[in-house]
């Protein structure tokens, strides 16, 4: 499906936000879902880049992504008026809970899909958001989260904003005060590993990333091993999975 770029903004030195308007009938994505975005006009880069939905507004989609290679670099150079070829929404939606203590744990650009999720959570939940990054200039969506949720906590590794340390340090501190919490987490693999250690008895729904081929479940390239030794497809069985069911 073709989608026109409406606006583009640089959120941090290497994180870009793009609003696009897809052509044709609009299918509203659910939190946790993603789109496969083709690299425009570069036939040597074949594969679509899987990018999660950061927000939806009036039939427009917001994608926030980090520049990690040539493909994302080309996507980042797109200008309003350019067109993207996008495929989606793909993946299984994240489960939505009601009337619970909910913790959103975001590392770096991982804040993006959690923001869209946060907008969807029923109001009877008690939501706390913890956003972490190495430095304050790498934090994203802090103001947007603060408009939705009162409790937004920040952790930076260099202490330039919020608590000095990692996002998981903050989680470890506040976790004992919450009864029967549910955690949603998106960020670096190491963050998810640490989170699973400190929240071993709590359901942690991790938004996973893996190298993908198709994004639609037909190539079996984005396997992640579950605790029974089988591989799940991150694109089809995920990307949101209970962390204690997979090997990280």
């Amino acid at each position: 499906m073709q989608a026109e770029i409406i606006s583009r903004a640089q959120l941090t030195p290497d994180v870009i936000s793009v609003w696009v308007k897809p052509k044709g009938i609009f299918v509203k994505p659910e939190p946790g879902q993603f789109y496969g975005i083709k690299i425009p006009e570069h036939n040597d880069l074949l594969l679509r880049r899987p990018i999660s939905v950061a927000d939806v507004h009036q039939h427009q989609l917001r994608f926030i992504f980090r520049i990690i290679g040539r493909g994302t670099e080309i996507l980042a150079r797109s200008e309003p008026g350019d067109w993207w070829d996008i495929l989606g929404p793909l993946g299984k939606p994240a489960p939505i809970f009601r009337n619970r203590n909910i913790l959103l744990c975001a590392g770096g650009v991982g804040a993006a899909p959690l923001y869209y999720l946060c907008r969807h959570l029923p109001r009877n939940n008690r939501v706390k958001v913890v956003i972490g990054a190495r430095r304050s200039d790498q934090l994203i969506l802090v103001h947007e989260f603060r408009k939705l949720v009162n409790a937004v906590l920040i952790a930076t590794e260099d202490g330039s904003c919020g608590q000095q340390g990692k996002v998981t340090d903050v989680i470890a501190r506040i976790l004992p005060s919450l009864s029967e919490p549910v955690i949603y987490a998106c960020g670096p693999r190491l963050m998810l590993v640490k989170l699973r250690q400190i929240a071993s008895n709590i359901p942690v729904w991790g938004f996973l990333e893996e190298r993908m081929g198709c994004g639609t479940g037909i190539c079996y390239c984005c396997g992640i091993e579950d605790i029974y030794g089988n591989y799940l497809r991150v694109c089809k069985d995920g990307p949101v999975v209970l962390l204690n069911t997979v090997k990280l």
Binding site: L46, E210, R211, E225
Partner: peptide, 17 residues
């Protein structure tokens, strides 16, 4: 079960799986 990840890489004009 198949091979451990990553299972795919992109190369110029192709993929390696």
């Amino acid at each position: 079960a198949g091979n451990p990840p990553p299972r795919i890489a992109e190369v110029c004009g192709g993929v390696v799986n």
